Simulated assay, not measured.
Amino acid sequence: MIRIAVANQKGGVGKTTTAINLATALAATGWKVLLIDLDPQGNASTGLGVHQSERARSSYELLTGDCTLDEAVIATKVPRLDLIAATVDLSGAEIELVEYEERTHRLDKALNGASERWDICLIDCPPSLGLLTINAMVGARSLLVPLQCEFFALEGLSQLLNTVERIRARFNPELSILGVALTMYDRRNNLTEQVAEDVRACLGNVVFDTVIPRNVRLSEAPSYGVPALIYDIRCAGSEAYMGLARELIGRLPLKAKAVAA
């Protein structure tokens, strides 16, 4: 199973929107997808229409070892897309996990014991570089970074990249950066164009060609409990995420793509 963490310690960059719609786009192409909501806010779970009453077992119980991955899985409204939901209990996990043995490898162990039901797993991380995000990076094999097209876009990115290097050196030598996705792109704004140029000049081919535009439909969809690709498949945001999914698949190693085929 291919494992990708969707992470950025900066909030409001479209991370959860990217995780939800990218997972839906991959499912639409025929892939069997698992989305793990590792953010205590649980926005990915809400955005997929999974209510609090349906979250009897969540990513919190998965990390603490109170349930297996298969026991925590919830089928969503999207064909071929399953979810491990998040609850507010995760907010205390950062402290609780300190007492656990191999606290940085809790998610990795859970994923290693998973069945072969899924081709790919996306992990929606909280907006921080705490223990939950570290668990995601240790459990993942690749990292996708949503980056908002604003003046402070690159601020903090170096910290994230340094964290990736430390994780690679100490815990997970397989971790690599799959790509950086520019989000909230507004062609009418000259600053947006300048920021995009600066990011590409700094990071080069790491940045995906596909950009995610500012789009009202992307903002509206979560309130209806469905991804934008279901809410309005013809909107600019949905088309962009379909393009990003195709580009992401093209970047996966041939071996990984063969496993998922």
Rank of each mutant, 00 (worst) to 15 (best):
D89C: 04
L154N: 10
D108V: 04
I120Q: 10
A196I: 11
V195G: 12
S45V: 02
L252M: 12
I249F: 11
I212F: 03
G12N: 07
G225A: 06
T46N: 00
A260Y: 08
V211W: 05
K109E: 13
S223K: 00
R168E: 12
K257R: 15
N189W: 05
R117V: 09
T210P: 08
R55N: 03
E71R: 07
A136H: 10
E239H: 01
E150Y: 05
T18R: 01
S58N: 14
D209V: 13
M242T: 09
V199T: 13
H105Y: 13
S128L: 08
L203G: 02
R188C: 00
R200W: 10
E197M: 13
E165G: 12
T210C: 12
E71G: 13
V207I: 02
S59L: 05
S115L: 14
N215L: 08
D124V: 07
G113Y: 03
R188S: 10
N135P: 05
L191M: 14
R103F: 04
A114V: 05
R80S: 12
S45W: 00
Y185N: 10
E150P: 05
L218T: 00
A181W: 07
L254E: 13
I95H: 09
E71C: 08
A196H: 03
T18W: 00
Y185H: 14
L48R: 04
Y231T: 08
I20Y: 07
N112H: 14
C235I: 04
T87M: 04
E61F: 06
V98R: 02
G130T: 07
R187T: 10
D70Q: 15
P127W: 09
V138L: 02
D39Q: 02
A181V: 15
Q148V: 11
N215S: 04
N21E: 07
I74W: 07
N112R: 14
I177W: 00
L81M: 08
I36F: 00
G243D: 12
R217V: 08
V98I: 14
R200L: 11
E116H: 11
Q148G: 02
Y224D: 08
Y241D: 00
C149K: 04
A140Y: 03
L34T: 04
D108L: 12
I230L: 15
S45G: 00
N190T: 12
L131S: 15
L107V: 01
A56E: 13
R234I: 04
G139I: 01
P253N: 04
K109Q: 14
R188T: 05
K257M: 15
L38I: 10
T104F: 11
W118N: 06
A75W: 02
L63F: 12
T16H: 05
A261N: 09
L83F: 10
A44E: 01
I95W: 08
